Structures are given as structure tokens and as C-alpha cells.
Simulated scan of single mutants.
Amino acid sequence: MLFAILLPGISMIFRGHILKGLLCGILHITLIGWIPAAIWAVASYREDLAEKRHRETMEFLARQRR
């Protein structure tokens, strides 16, 4: 998460969000835009974690039904 705060655009690109990462990187270049870019990157990171937990839960429930 620290990586998402310090380098938000690169953080998004590493997680597979290429276009979001480029837009976030452009926003990050401006000093005023760094704070919104960092918030966006952290929110995206948390969303990816929630999505991963959801997938794991659904796989677990599917295995329990068998």
C-alpha cells in the first residue's frame, strides 16, 4: 500500500490496470494532482483485494456444495 501512495501510477500498472495507471501517472506529475492520484491508487488497491477475497469465498462455497 505504501507503493500505491508513493508511486500511484506505477502501482496501478503493476496490478494490470494499464489505462488507469497512465491517467494516474499523468495526474501524479502535477503537485496538486499527487494527492488525488494517491487516493485513487489506494482505493483501487483496496478494491482489488476485496475482489480477490470475493473470488476466494465463492470458490470455497462452490467446493462445499460438491
Rank of each mutant, 00 (worst) to 15 (best):
E51Y: 08
P36H: 11
S44L: 07
L49T: 08
A50W: 11
L31E: 07
A41K: 05
G9E: 00
G33W: 11
I26M: 12
A41F: 07
G9D: 01
G16L: 10
D48G: 13
R63G: 05
G33S: 12
F60S: 11
W40L: 15
F60K: 14
H17L: 09
L22Q: 10
I39G: 08
D48K: 13
A43S: 08
K52T: 14
W34R: 09
I35N: 04
T57V: 09
T57I: 14
E56I: 10
L7M: 03
T57L: 12
L49K: 12
C24H: 10
I18S: 08
V42E: 11
G33H: 09
A38R: 02
I13Q: 03
W40I: 13
I35A: 04
L22R: 11
I29M: 04
H54D: 10
R15M: 13
L23I: 14
A37N: 06
L31C: 13
P8R: 04
G9P: 02
A4D: 03
E56V: 09
H54G: 05
D48I: 11
G21K: 06
A62G: 06
I18T: 15
A43I: 06
A37C: 07
P8F: 08
A43C: 00
M58Y: 06
M58G: 00
E51D: 08
L61E: 08
F3V: 09
I29T: 00
A62W: 10
M12F: 01
I10L: 13
L61T: 01
R53G: 07
L6N: 03
L23C: 15
T30I: 07
G25L: 07
A4Q: 03
F60L: 14
S11K: 00
H54P: 00
A50E: 15
Q64H: 01
L2E: 02
A43P: 01
I39M: 14
A41I: 03
G21H: 04
L6Q: 05
L49F: 11
I18D: 07
A50R: 15
G33A: 12
G25Q: 02
A41L: 10
M1Y: 05
R15C: 08
E59M: 05
